[in-house]
Computed example of a mutant assay.
Amino acid sequence: MAASPYTCVLWDVDGTIADASAGILPRLVEVYAAFGLPEPAQSELSRWIGPPMFESFRDLAGLSEEDAHLAVRKYRELAMRDGYAASVRIYRGVAEALQTVKAAGIPQATASSKPENQVLAILEHYGLIDDFVIVAGALPDASGLHDGKEAVLRRALHRLTEAGVDVSRPVLIGDRLHDIEGAAPLGVPVIFVTWGFGEPGESAGAIAEVATPDELLRILLPHG
Rank of each mutant, 00 (worst) to 15 (best):
A2D: 06
A2K: 05
Y6H: 06
V9A: 09
L10F: 02
D14N: 09
G15N: 11
T16C: 08
G23L: 01
L28C: 03
F35H: 04
L37P: 03
P40S: 05
P40W: 00
A41Y: 03
S46D: 12
S46N: 10
S46T: 15
S46M: 12
R47M: 12
W48N: 10
I49D: 04
F54M: 11
F54Q: 07
E55P: 00
F57H: 05
R58C: 04
D59Q: 13
L60K: 10
L60P: 06
E66W: 03
E66V: 15
E66I: 15
A68P: 01
A71D: 00
R76A: 06
R76G: 01
L78S: 04
M80G: 08
R81V: 04
A85R: 06
S87W: 08
R92P: 04
G93H: 02
A95E: 08
E96T: 07
V101M: 00
V101R: 02
K102W: 01
G105T: 06
P107R: 06
K114A: 11
P115C: 06
E116V: 11
V119H: 01
I129R: 14
D131H: 15
D131F: 13
F132I: 14
I134R: 14
A136V: 09
G137T: 05
D141N: 13
S143I: 05
L145R: 15
E150S: 12
E150A: 15
R154T: 15
R155I: 08
G164Y: 05
P170R: 02
P170I: 12
R176I: 14
E181N: 13
G182D: 10
A184V: 15
V190A: 11
G198Y: 11
E199Q: 14
P200L: 12
S203R: 13
I207H: 05
I207Y: 07
A211D: 13
T212A: 08
P213I: 06
D214C: 03
D214T: 15
L221M: 00
